[in-house]
Structure formats: C-alpha cells, structure tokens
Write a protein that binds this DNA or RNA. Structure first.
Length: 659
RNA sequence: GCCGACAUAGCUCAGCUGGCAGAGCAGCUGAUUCGUAAUCAGCAGGUCAACGGUUCAAAUCCGUUUGUCGGCUCCA
C-alpha cells in the first residue's frame, strides 16, 4: 500500500527491461527520457509506446504505465519518418502548386505516397522540384507540433482552406465517435493525423520521390481522379543509396527479363497466364519435381495422380462452388439452355486445388489406423482463373503445378508430423541458401469448430514448432477458418521476402467428406488433414529462384551444366570424347563448334550463365584433360588443367541433388 | 475486373508536327583455326499486335479487341 500512499502527483513508469521510475505527473516523454534514462537516447528518440499505444515524445505522462522508446534503430522508426516525409511532401506541393488539394498520405512497405487533387498532372520535372523543396524543408528542421481540436474548430480551419476532401474525412472521423481531431503542423503547414510524428522534420534524413500514378478518391473510380506521388525516405543518404542499388539489382534480376535472356520460358497471347517452358526451363522444372518426389518418397509419402476435370458435384461438396467459383474454369454443357447463366450450364470444372480429389481418393478404400499418417503427394496441373490485371510473369499465373500433399493422421500424431515437415522444409530452403522464418497463425474470428478443438489444434502445432527450435512470429487471428497454420517466409540473396511453404491443419474437410478410419477400438474415427507445400507452386518458386540466383543456377539445377570450348578444329575429337564421358555420367553438356575465337566462346558461355566452361586446346588434348573455367570474371575463375577424371569427380559431386 | 501507359525483325531499341521501314546483336553464307568476356565480309529477315475508321497518303491520327507493364481505400 506504500505506493498508493505516494503523492498523487507522481506516476510510475515501467521500462521494457522492468526498471521502474517515478516522476511528477505531467512530465513529457522527452523530459522523462532525458532526465531518467539519458541524453543519448533522448537525442535518438523518435516516438514512444505507452501501454502499447504509439505516442509523440511531446506527450505528457499523466498516469502510471509501461513505456518503450523507439529510435531510428527500430523498423517502426523508419516507418514513422516516412509518414513525416509524406507530410513534408504535401506541404511543399501546396506551396509550389497553389490550389492543389490534399487528401491522404500513408506509408507503405517501401516508402509512402500522398494523393493530391489537381487538374494538371505532375510532370517528372515537377517531381524533381518537389523533391528538392522537400529536402530543403528537412534541412530547416521545423518541429512537428501536435494540437487537439474539436469538430467545429476542425471544420472551420479546413473549411477556410477550402480542403473539401479533408472536410469529408473530418465528418467521417467524428461520425465514428471521435471526440477530438489531432492536428500536426510543421512550419506554417498543418494537417490532421493520428500520429505520432517525429520531433522535427530534420529527423527525416533524405526524401526521394519515385513516381506519380493515378488513383481515385477512396479507391473508387466513380470518385474524383487524384494524383498519387510515390516516394520513400531514409535516415541518411547511405541508406537511400543502398536501397537504390538494391532496386537496380532487383531490376537486373527480374525473372521475366532473365527468362527471356536465358531462354527459360515464354508466354503467348493465345494462353495468357500459362507458361511455355523451353528445354532449358523444363530441365529446371523437372529437376525440382524429381528432387521433391525423391524427398517425399524418403519421408513416407506416396505420389498419386488424380483427374484434372471434375463434375461440379465435387465442388459443391468441397464448398468451392459457393466460395471459389469465380476463380474456376468451368466447362459448359453444350446441350444446356444458352439463356441460363454460365454457372448453371457448367457441368465440369478444371481443378483449382488438389485437396478435394485427395479426399475422394482417401475415401475410396476403408482406412485402418495402422495406415496413418497417410501422406498423399501430387504434382498435377491446376487452373485458377485469376483476374487479368493481376497476372505477372511466373509469380501470378493461371495454370501451375504445386508440390502439394495432404497428410491424413490422428490428432495424437500432429506434433510428430509437423516436426518432420519443418525438418523437410528447412532442408529444402537451406539447399538453395534461402533463409526463412515461420509465422504461426491462430484461430480467426469467424471459424468453425469449438474452442476445445482449436485449443488442441493450436497446442499441437505450437508444441511442434517449439520443438524444432525455429524462431516464429505469432499471427493471432490469421488462421484459416478450418484450422491454424504455419506459413514460411524466405529471404532471397538480396534480402527480399517471399511467402513460400505452408502447413495448415484442417478439421473441416474430414467433416465435409465424411473421412474416417477404423481405430484400434474397432470403431470409426475422424482423421485430421494437414495441407502442406514446400515450394508452393513450381512456377512461382522457379521465378523466385531465378531472381535469387540472378540466373546463376548451381550445377545441379543448371539446364546446361558445362560447355566444352575447343580452341581449334583439331581439338574437336577430344572435345567429343569428353562430352561423351560426361553424358554417360548423366551430365548436361554441349560442345561449342562455332568457329569464333576462344574469347567469344567464353563470352557466350558467360552470358548463358553456364556453371563450367571447359577449354580444350593442345595442352588438354596432350594431357587427356580439360581446363575448367567457373562462371565468373577474371583469373580466379580459371581452375587450371585437370585430368578428365578429376574434373568428373568434382562436377558430379556438385550435380548431386542436395535433398 | 477497374484506371493509366505501352505493343516496330528472334532479342534490345531508333523512326520529329502523317510522305518509300532503320540500327546493333542473334541467324544464314563465305573467309579465318584463333588460349580465357565480342575475327572479318556478305546475305537474309517486317501485314509496324489484330480489326475497323479518317486521309491523296497512316507505324504515326481516331475507335474497338487482344496482350504486356505499373497501380488499385495496407491509419487522418
């Protein structure tokens, strides 16, 4: 009771490390940090979280609670200054282009945007001028000043400015029950905003404007046409340069560009969203298929194939007909009345997923508990009718194959099975040098099944996840309506994140498909289903791999693993012998019979990103060997003269499938 | 699906306010037989995405269709 006896004018602040400090009520966060923690942090601080809510440093501490300080070292710090940057850009746009109205300006993953209403479009020169002025505003280091106003004050202020979009937002905010509106100003420009903002414009560092694009007020094309200025901001020029270089690097690695240059795949207008795989691309595709098959077989899976085209009765049973029909390619009954809507004339559909047919397969024969877990693997072709506007290279297609599997098991087997899966996933991603993180998604608001069931399901998944020792992020409420899941995000060689594998528990399918097994008690029980994929789709995975490796595939995956370069025609005979010996080992190798100079042949092999170029001249013929040159530049790429046997041993080891 | 931009030789791209379709690379032919990122010469290659319109004349202007690219309320 001694605490409550303390002066009511004191508040107790708990820091993230558990330390507690008492200060006078009304002390600002900034003062608190300076006096109680240190001037270093006080200088670095950008904003704070008080009992979980983000607040400005200028806010007063009026009650006891937990306080955490955020600086440029926290990812949230960058997000904050980008929001500051959006305000700064809006302020200079209104100064440089009088009459322009402001709307909203949120941050994005890569930066921020701000939507403006202005009749004349912004030109690239305008963007340059805005960017220059915005960075001057940063250097002026105006403080951000926070102020709360009432509905009337807000309406009067923005009404006077003639900001009709802002007035609309203000009405919205107050109609949703807000008591006050928070204004933020810097210099003589004011906007309203939830905040928080940094202490001053100087903390933003550097602003870079990227592009201008059309957008609509509230995202609706019936509304006013706005101009969206995209930009980004960093704490310093060095970070911005690094980001710019990364963008440039990403453009160079774009799988659509490399796919053409390395002759891996193509598209034709006759089949939008469906890939033509060239001989090179098909080699990668089938190698990945082979590797996954082999791994599945080694892990107790069986591979099956099921029909591609199914009567709609199946889709009605699975629930796809109701929820997923828009995305399904329907086959219309030619005899049906043409006046009927398509979904009523449809009798069949191409499968968009493998699960329903796997469930049918499971049901075909009575199952014993002794057969569980039953692991069904399928790499069949799937079709999903994606909207035209979202198709993009290999990452979003209409026809694809997954390394799909469904595992039917008893609840008691979940933990063990998930551990096994995590091990497989880890092995596969590591083989490509992809680092990964896991996200554990728990029960959503709308779900089926009672809480006891979810408790068990989440408990089993969590136990398995923890036993693997993987770090994971918790995503409460992000699970599927039929069960919790673990999603895997990989980071590629230039740090970009991609969501790949997934492990999902499903309690609904056994219900809908009346799946059962006979237990040791000789009575029927319901199995649980695990949906899992490691690559996701082959198409998208190959797209990611192309960008990850920048087209420089490891030997085991490279379509052409080596190219033999005879210096002159008299070396062709030995070149052919070397090729034959390599082909016999199952290696993929060509001989360059063009009559160019060696330098030209090397260049061609380099541009084709072939792992090994094998130079054969007088020395090599004499020594019955080859002089390999690894993909790469300069002298260090040259390995020197090796005997054929020595080289074969080396390359065969690298050609081994690593999982 | 919606908005915007774009579509010229296999590839990368020129082609101005409408006036005979261009280059480099790749390809083919010939010469050259060459040692670690481009040997030389010649030849061939196009219904300018498709369809329709305006015009004496359309790659170029207009319309429709197809495809590609970027974006599509992720806080005030």
């Amino acid at each position: 009771m001694s605490e409550s006896a303390a002066s009511a004018a004191e508040v107790t602040i708990t820091l993230p490390d558990g330390a507690q400090k008492s200060v006078a009520a009304g002390t600002t966060v900034a003062d608190f940090v300076r006096t109680q923690i240190g001037v270093g942090l006080a200088k670095a601080a950008l904003f704070a979280k008080f009992d979980g809510a983000e607040i400005d440093l200028s806010r007063a501490l009026t009650q006891s609670g937990k306080l955490a300080i955020f600086t440029s070292k926290n990812p949230e710090g960058l997000d904050l200054v980008r929001h500051d940057a959006a305000h700064i850009v809006a302020s200079v746009v209104q100064r440089l282009f009088p009459g322009t109205q402001v709307t909203i300006g949120p941050t994005t993953d890569e930066g921020f945007y701000y939507d403006f209403f202005r009749e004349k479009p912004f030109t690239p020169e305008d963007l340059e001028a805005i960017e220059k002025a915005a960075n001057e505003e940063v250097r002026k280091d105006h403080p951000f000043v926070r102020k709360e106003v009432t509905r009337e004050e807000a309406l009067e202020l923005f009404g006077k400015m003639g900001e009709k979009f802002k007035l609309e937002i203000i009405e919205d905010i107050f109609s949703k029950g807000a008591k006050t509106l928070t204004l933020y100003s810097h210099g003589d420009w004011v906007d309203f905003c939830l905040g928080p903002h940094g202490p001053s414009t100087g903390r933003v560092g550097v602003i870079k404007l990227l592009s201008v694009a059309g957008a609509y007020w509230r995202g609706d094309h019936r509304n006013a046409q706005l101009q969206r200025i995209y930009g980004t901001a960093f704490f310093n020029q060095k970070d911005l340069d690094a980001w710019t270089n990364l963008q440039e690097e990403a453009r160079k690695r774009d799988h659509r560009k490399l796919g053409k240059e390395l002759d891996l795949f193509a598209f034709h207008p006759a089949a939008p969203g469906a890939v033509f795989w060239t001989a090179n691309g098909t080699m990668i595709y089938t190698t990945l298929q082979y590797a996954m098959r082999r791994m599945c077989l080694a892990n107790g899976y069986v591979e099956i194939k099921t029909p591609l085209l199914f009567n709609k009765l199946l889709w009605e049973k699975s629930g796809h007909w109701g929820k997923y029909r828009e995305n399904m390619f329907l086959v219309l009954d030619p005899e049906a009345d043409e006046t009927l809507p398509a979904e009523e004339r449809a009798t069949f559909s191409l499968k968009p997923m493998n699960c329903p047919s796997h469930h049918l397969f499971y049901q075909m024969k009575k199952k014993s508990y002794r057969e569980l877990p039953l692991r069904l693997h399928t790499q069949d072709v799937l079709h999903r009718n994606e909207a035209t506007g979202v198709l993009s290279g290999l990452t979003r297609v209409r026809q694809f194959q997954q390394d799909d599997a469904h595992i039917y098991l008893m609840e008691s087997q979940i933990t063990e099975e998930v551990k096994k899966l995590a091990a497989m996933i880890s092995k596969v991603y590591s083989a490509f040098g992809l680092t990964f993180t896991a996200k554990f998604a728990t029960r959503p608001a709308t779900k089926i099944g009672d809480d006891a069931l979810w408790d068990r399901a989440e408990g089993a998944l969590k136990a398995a996840l923890e036993e693997t020792g993987l770090a994971y992020e918790l995503k409460p409420g992000d699970g599927a309506f039929y069960g919790p899941k673990i999603d895997f995000d990989v980071a590629d060689s230039i740090g970009r994140k991609w969501q790949l594998g997934t492990i999902q528990l499903d309690y609904v399918a056994p219900e809908r498909f009346e799946l059962a097994y006979i237990g040791s008690d000789n009575s029927e029980h319901k199995p649980v289903v695990i949906h899992r994929a490691i690559y996701g789709s082959f198409e998208r995975f190959i797209g990611i791999l192309i960008e990850h490796f920048a087209g420089n595939f490891p030997v085991w995956l490279a379509p052409e693993q080596a190219r033999i370069l005879p210096v002159a025609e008299r070396h062709h005979a030995w070149a052919r012998e070397v090729q034959a010996a390599m082909l016999k080992k199952g290696l993929r190798v060509e001989v360059d019979v063009s009559q160019g100079k060696l330098g030209a042949m090397i260049r061609d092999a380099q541009l084709a990103k072939i792992p090994y170029a094998l130079v054969i001249g007088d020395k090599e013929v004499e020594a019955k060997g080859v002089s390999p040159r690894k993909h790469g530049t300069g002298k260090e790429a040259e390995l020197g003269l090796l005997t054929l046997d020595a080289f074969l041993e080396k390359i065969c080891a690298e050609a081994e499938v690593p999982y």
